[in-house]
Amino acid sequence: MNKISTKPGVEEKWDIIITPKKPLFELKLKEVWQYKDLLFLFVRRDIVAQYKQTILGPLWYFIQPILTTIMFTIVFGRIAKIPTDGLPPMLFYLAGITNWNYFAVCLSKVATTFRTNQGIFGKVYFPRLVTPLSIVISNMIQYGIQLLLFFGFYIYFALSGSAAQINMYALFFPILVILLAGLGLGFGLVITSLTTKYRDLVFLLQFGIQLAMYATPVIYPLSQIPERYQWIAVLNPMTAVIETFKYGFLGQGTFSWTYLAYSFSFMIVMLFLGIAIFNKTEKNFMDTV
């Protein structure tokens, strides 16, 4: 090794500084951008690996929502006779379930990020946020496929002369997708961060998601709720998302700028909160998980 004399007076400049001090609010999105290739590969891995060694392969993307829809049509449409605003029940349920499913899958998968990935997180550093982001994106593709199914049915029912009418409000669709993804991600990040040390919330999660579905106008229209209590349902940020979707694509439901703006601001706050807590947790979660 050749000797190099130290030069005093040269200002020391470091690329990486690791300290126990954590800034209260840190998004680290720039770092995530540097790892965009990893994000892409994670998405690919999730999609490719999911249906390997199955005979029906990606067909499962269709089978699962169809079966749920049929079940709901029978249970809620035929047996409980909950009205669907004059729409074909199949279409009504499919619209609700497809959207709800995307949110629910994002939430439940993101909510276990730390636990399911502790092996890899414990061995190598990369911005942890890449993992939940990849979950949201890979499920977005699944969501897209299921939407195709919805539009298939949509065309079928439109040709057979149903009341469903697509209108200008369908243009809100991209915002609705962002809302679904953002809400799922935001809630999920908060939950996964809270459950690294105390796992109590985990027990509530699956149960809670199911309860939340019944608290959201997924299988019934908002108009079914007595007017005095509607404000409670609207406090749920998912309500506006599902209702706007139904309003835009099916022509039935409730649309309100206020509700939508409320959901959007809720999503933004939740997302920032989620990312901040997540980044704070990631530094030490290996010691407590």
């Binding site: 690791i18 126990p20 092996g119």
Partner: peptide
């Protein structure tokens, strides 16, 4: 683990220059 940023220190400071790659396990992920 501290050097490779898998977990944070309780006290003190690490400064480094350049990319750090850690091989704590073969075939992670």
């Amino acid at each position: 683990k501290l050097l490779s940023k898998v977990t944070a220190p309780s006290k003190g400071k690490i400064c480094a220059r350049g990319r750090i790659a850690s091989l704590l396990e073969v075939g992670t992920g």
